[in-house]
Simulated scan of single mutants.
Amino acid sequence: MHKITQVQVKPNYTLALVFDDGTAGEIALGDRLFGPMFEPLKDPSLFAQVSIDPFGALCWPNDADLAPDALYHAVRKQITN
Rank of each mutant, 00 (worst) to 15 (best):
E39L: 14
Q6H: 15
K77R: 13
D63G: 01
G30F: 00
V75E: 04
L15S: 06
N81I: 10
K10H: 11
W60Y: 10
A24T: 14
P68R: 00
T23S: 10
P61I: 01
P36S: 13
V50I: 06
I4A: 03
T14W: 04
D65A: 09
T14L: 03
I27C: 04
I79E: 10
Q49F: 07
V9Q: 08
Q78K: 13
G35C: 09
A24H: 09
F19L: 08
M1P: 02
N62Q: 08
A28H: 12
C59P: 05
Q6V: 13
I79V: 14
T5D: 00
N12A: 11
S51G: 12
K10G: 00
V18R: 05
D43H: 06
V50D: 02
G30K: 12
D20R: 08
H2E: 09
P61D: 08
G25W: 07
L15H: 07
G22N: 12
L58T: 04
Y13R: 03
A64E: 04
L17H: 00
N81V: 12
F19N: 02
D53W: 13
S51H: 11
V7C: 04
L33Q: 01
K3H: 10
T23G: 05
A64S: 10
G56Y: 01
V50N: 02
G25K: 02
L58G: 05
V7S: 03
D69M: 12
L17Y: 03
V18D: 03
R32D: 12
F38M: 13
E39H: 07
N81T: 13
G30H: 08
S51M: 10
I27R: 02
L33C: 08
M37L: 13
R76F: 09
I79C: 08
F47E: 02
V9F: 00
F55S: 14
K77P: 02
D53N: 15
G35W: 03
T23H: 11
F55A: 14
M1I: 11
Y72W: 13
D63Q: 11
L58Y: 01
L33I: 01
L66K: 04
M1Y: 09
F19C: 03
N12F: 15
